[in-house]
Design a protein around this nucleic acid. Sequence first.
DNA 1: GAATTTCATAAGCCATGACTTATGATTGAG
DNA 2: CTCAATCATAAGTCATGGCTTATGAAATTC
Lengths: 111, 111
Amino acid sequence: MKFAMHEFAVTQLMRTLSDPTRRAVFERLSREGELTVGALTEGAGVSQPAVSQHLAALKIAGLVRERREGRRTHYRVEPAGLAPLIDWFAHYSTFWPERFDQLEAVLKDMD
Amino acid sequence: MKFAMHEFAVTQLMRTLSDPTRRAVFERLSREGELTVGALTEGAGVSQPAVSQHLAALKIAGLVRERREGRRTHYRVEPAGLAPLIDWFAHYSTFWPERFDQLEAVLKDMD
DNA sequence: GAATTTCATAAGCCATGACTTATGATTGAG
DNA sequence: CTCAATCATAAGTCATGGCTTATGAAATTC
C-alpha cells in the first residue's frame, strides 16, 4: 500500500530529526532562511565538522538543499522533504480525528 | 517560548518512533486496537522481550497505555501522546503553508 | 501445589551514530 | 605567489540502543 511505500522515508526522517542538535540546525534554517555553514556553526554548540555532518544528513534525508557560492556553501530548507511525515500524520488522522482538532484549528487560522 | 517547552518531548517522540520495529508495533495498535504482548509478538519479527522493551519505550514516551488483566497485559494507543509532534508540525505550517494543503484536505474530508 | 502460561527485567553483545581533531581541497585576499 | 578563509572528509573515540538468551514474578490450569 501507499503507506508501506513511504515507510523507509518516514524512518529516515524521524531518525534525522530526532537528534536535537541536527533538528536545531533545521529549525534555524526554517526561521532565518538561507545560511552558510559558518553562520550555522555559530551558536550550534558543536564544531564546524559536526555541523557539516548534520547538514549532510539533512541533505540525504531531502530536508535541505545546498548552493555553492565561491568558497562558501549556503544551505536552505527543502519544504517538500517533510511530505512523507505529513502523509504519516494524515494517515493517523483517520484513526483519531479528535486528536487533530488542534492542528486543524491552526490550519484554518491560516486561511 | 512554548516551542522550547516541548523540545524534549519532540526529541523523545521522534526518537521513539524512528525505530521501524517499534513504530510497527505502534501502528498495529492503532489499526487493531487493544492487543496483548503475545499477540503483538506474533508477526513482529523479534522476540517477546524485544516487544516488551519496545512497549516500555512507547509507554515512557506517552504513546501507549497498559491494562493488566490476570497474567496478560493489554496495550492500547494513547492518542494524546502525539500532541507535541502535532504542535511541532503546526509550527512549520506557518512557514510553508502550501505543504500542508494535503493534510488540510484530509482533515476537511473528515467533516 | 506442581506445572504451565504470560509477561517483565537483567546481562551481555554488537552495530550505529554523534562528536572530536586532523587534514585536504577550493577559493579569495594581500 | 603565498597565505588565510571556508567547508568537507577521514579516522578514531565513546555512548547509546536494539537485539539476544536467561531468568524471575505472577497468575491460571490440572
